[in-house]
Nucleic acid binder design. Structure first.
Length: 367
DNA sequence: TCTGGGGTCCTAGGACCC
DNA sequence: TCTGGGGTCCTAGGACCC
């Protein structure tokens, strides 16, 4: 989906179409009606606090504001851009709609998160161009939103192709097109080559996918290890034989929070304890709502210097109970030396199994 | 005035067992 | 003086993705 969160917001606020708009923040405020009935939008330049941009419209991207960027920094680049708070319930609803619309045409779908899917089109008779047009029209009818599609022999290339003509793009690519169309791209465009690997590739003088495709494999192996080097080289040649995964059981469920200001372990002891318990309760609620129990309880702390530590413990019996989670998480916390102020606190339950018990037990398992 | 929240996967090392 | 070879389970950290 194209600039998904922002595009969903523009359905509610059509007067913002064509403007730089950013979705994100924890303090960001929904628009208010003024005395004349005009909607008044918060401006990015006025934002104060720790949020990041989750999505920006293409007009905001043109000003340098991308997802993941701190809103304070973004506010310096685009102070007049509109800032909207995220409305996840709406995004989930539109996500459900677009996936359902696609599923009616092509039922073999791999879910890749709220705004992205892989679709296996190989069993369909129509030609690729026609299919792309059909899919886009179905999504538009169901949501009023545009998407971008890449049709290629595999997931790796489809991911790259779908990004090549955004927004509202359709890109068809064959394996023999890889040298001409893919090799000029930066290596970091490949799904699985992130900022760290990109930086190390640059140190080796490898900048584009083409550089990677023709790089000395021994050099890659030295830097990245045998398996990652082999994967990189295959990827650079457009090779990928991963199947579509249509069913996936969740492995873990977690909740975390970044405090508006760092919390001193002693001076803010009580507030920290309350936040910690609240996270356990939320995780327990999530588990119960989704019907899972888990045996592995973990916590995550991020200190004021951004150093992140995790601790985990495995129980003999899987649980979805807030009190059990809170106790186990508390034991984990005792194993961390709290020498600095705390920026982030998180609680995770892993090793999930489907819960066997039903409604009546849900209440009992909460506090 | 840096740097969210929810995930997955991989690696390395240690404990423990046969 | 020398200390195997597999296997499983677990923890911690880190890279990466949406």
């Amino acid at each position: 989906m194209d600039a998904f969160f922002a595009s969903v917001e523009l359905l509610s606020y059509p007067e913002l179409i064509g403007q730089p708009v950013v979705v994100g923040g924890r303090n960001s405020e929904a628009p208010l009606l003024d005395a004349t009935g005009q909607r008044q939008f918060a401006r990015l330049g006025h934002y104060v606090g720790r949020g990041v941009a989750t999505t920006s419209t293409y007009e905001a991207r043109a000003l340098g504001v991308f997802s993941g960027m701190g809103l304070m920094q973004a506010g310096r680049l685009a102070p007049d851009a509109v800032l909207l708070p995220a409305n996840f319930d709406a995004y989930k609803e539109y996500s459900r709609r677009f996936k359902q619309a696609v599923a009616r045409i092509a039922p073999c779908i791999e879910d890749r998160g709220i705004d992205e899917i892989y679709i296996d089109l190989s069993a369909l008779k129509a030609d690729s161009q026609t299919l792309a047009a059909q899919l886009k029209q179905a999504v538009r009818d169901a949501t009023g939103l545009s998407c971008s599609i890449g049709i290629t022999p595999n997931k790796l290339l489809s991911k790259l192709a779908s990004d090549m003509n955004k927004p509202d793009g359709t890109t068809l690519l064959r394996l023999e097109d890889v040298p001409d169309r893919i090799w000029p791209l930066p290596a970091g465009k490949i799904n699985g080559i992130g900022p760290k690997a990109t930086a190390r590739l640059h140190q080796l003088g490898i900048v584009t996918v083409g550089d990677l495709a023709t790089a000395d494999i021994a050099l890659l192996q030295e830097t990245f290890g045998l398996s990652y080097a082999a994967w990189m080289r295959d990827a650079a040649h457009g090779h990928d034989n991963r199947p579509l995964i249509m069913e996936r059981a969740p492995k873990s469920i977690s909740r975390e929070t970044t405090f508006e200001t760092d919390m001193h372990p002693k001076r803010h002891r009580e507030a920290l304890g309350q936040a910690f318990t609240a996270l356990c309760v939320r995780v327990a609620e999530d588990l119960n709502r989704k019907g899972y129990v888990g045996r592995n309880i973990g916590i995550k702390l991020r200190f004021d210097n951004f150093e992140t530590v995790t601790r985990a413990t495995t129980l003999t019996q899987a649980t979805a109970g807030a009190a059990v989670i809170r106790h186990a998480a508390g034991q984990c916390l005792k194993r961390i030396v709290l020498g600095r102020s705390i920026r982030l606190l998180g609680v995770r339950v892993g090793h999930l199994e489907e819960a066997e018990l039903e409604a009546g037990d849900v209440q009992a398992s909460l506090f």
